[in-house]
């Protein structure tokens, strides 16, 4: 069980930090936040946003402009958005560096005081990627069953049989309803497609 607890509990106090800055004249933003290294995550996201803005502006120059009399070609809007994105990223970057922190989203099943379980996030992401690559090979029901079981397991479901069984039954029922009754295109896998041919 290797959970990266570093970032999690601290983020619960995020608002508190920002609140203090709004209250007091203490300008010690970067120093106050720095040692704990708590907003490196958002800083990284902001740098990514800056990169997106630069990409928009630089790559817009490569868009071919047909030689028409059109006053405003396909490049203008990308430049405009790129500019706005760059400006936003810079302003947000300054704010984040000065210790401002976005309040983590609340949700019914989220415990903001808990540490971040990176392992669970990793398992969910990898399971989802694997199922995306497997769909056309083994069919949607089987691929999604494996994904379902892995995700349930990562989120703390007990045992192996029950998650697999729950995922298997649900996916087959869903597949039959959507493919046979609603005519949605979804590969069923050789076995299931043969077994349900009479439907």
């Amino acid at each position: 069980m290797s959970t990266a607890a570093g970032a999690g509990p601290a983020a619960g106090n995020a608002g508190e930090d920002a609140g203090r800055h709004a209250d007091g004249p203490d300008p010690a933003g970067p120093h106050a936040a720095g040692p704990q290294g708590r907003n490196t995550g958002e800083l990284a996201l902001t740098v990514l946003l800056l990169a997106l803005g630069l990409y928009l502006v630089l790559d817009a120059a490569n868009i071919a402009v047909p030689g028409s009399s059109n006053t405003l070609g396909p490049r203008f809007f990308p430049y405009l958005i790129g500019g706005v994105v760059i400006a936003t990223a810079l302003a947000l970057g300054v704010r984040v560096l000065r210790g401002d922190r976005g309040p983590a989203d609340e949700s019914e099943d989220v415990d903001l005081t808990a540490g971040t379980d990176w392992r669970a996030v990793g398992v969910v992401a990898v399971a989802f990627l694997a199922h995306a690559l497997l769909i056309n090979v083994i069919g949607w029901p089987l691929a999604v069953t494996l994904m379902f079981a892995a995700v349930a397991w990562a989120l703390g479901a007990r045992g192996i049989v029950r998650p697999l069984l729950a995922g298997g039954i649900t996916s087959i029922v869903v597949w039959i309803v959507f493919v046979k009754a609603l005519n949605v295109a979804l590969p069923g896998g050789t076995l299931l497609e043969l077994a349900t041919e009479w439907l």
Partner: peptide, 15 residues
């Protein structure tokens, strides 16, 4: 149970 709920949400997201 939450593990099944979120696994199910991902199933429908995929669908």
């Amino acid at each position: 149970p939450r593990p099944y709920l979120y696994a199910g949400i991902l199933m429908f997201a995929s669908l």
